[in-house]
């Protein structure tokens, strides 16, 4: 049993890492990766929602009638998204401001509903938690990598809690392109290309 939990957990970290291996959840990954802080914050918020919604969907999977399962899943997901929203507002307010409408939009992140439908509705709760955690951490890693590339190239520094860690000296001319919208697309496209160069196994 421990083995199958480990298997469900690790697949989200590499073989099925979103959005590099399975192209889902693109909107947040493009929009909130201007800075590493935002990227990781968004990743953790999504992980929280994924784990809890997976757990509850899996818990009630035998009670929920098949025909209304999607609305039921959506309500469960939306509840946890609102919980995250309120908690972030109360405890990590600056991050809440930066992520803006992308927190409520976790509801329509295809990864969350995708995992509920494809995994949690067919598997036992403990496996669903492992799956949610793995997928969530994988997603956080992707966000962290993309935001690190964009922030370092775009501003020449990484900022945590208002204190910038300058990586390049004043001679470095920042690629402002990277932190703007077009840079997000190009940067993700190139990262996908690098991922394709590395074999899955």
């Amino acid at each position: 049993m421990a083995q199958s939990i480990a298997k469900e957990f690790t697949k989200g970290l590499w073989t099925e890492i979103a959005p590099f291996r399975i192209v889902l959840g693109l909107c947040p990954i493009l929009a909130v990766t201007k800075t590493v802080e935002n990227g990781i914050g968004m990743g953790l918020a999504t992980t929280f929602v994924l784990v809890f919604s997976n757990f509850f969907v899996s818990l009630f999977r035998n009670i929920i009638p098949a025909k209304v399962r999607i609305p039921c899943f959506i309500v469960i997901i939306a509840t946890f998204v609102t919980i995250v929203e309120l908690l972030m507002q109360a405890y990590t307010y600056p991050l809440f401001l930066k992520l803006g409408i992308f927190i409520p939009l976790i509801v329509v992140n295809c990864i969350v509903l995708g995992r509920a439908e494809a995994f949690a509705s067919k598997n036992a709760p403990h496996l669903s938690i492992a799956d949610g955690l793995g997928m969530g951490i994988g997603f956080t890693l992707s966000l962290a990598v993309l935001s690190a590339v964009r922030e370092v190239l775009g501003t020449g520094a990484i900022t945590f809690y208002e204190t910038p860690i300058v990586l390049f000296g004043p001679a470095f001319e920042p690629f402002t392109f990277m932190v703007e919208a077009p840079g997000a697309f190009v940067c993700l496209g190139l990262l996908l290309c690098f991922m394709n160069l590395i074999p899955k196994k």
Binding site: V23, A184, F185, V186
Partner: peptide, 11 residues
């Protein structure tokens, strides 16, 4: 596929 798609979208 997606990779070139994203870069095109960027442009």
């Amino acid at each position: 596929d997606t990779s070139i798609g994203l870069i095109t979208a960027g442009i």
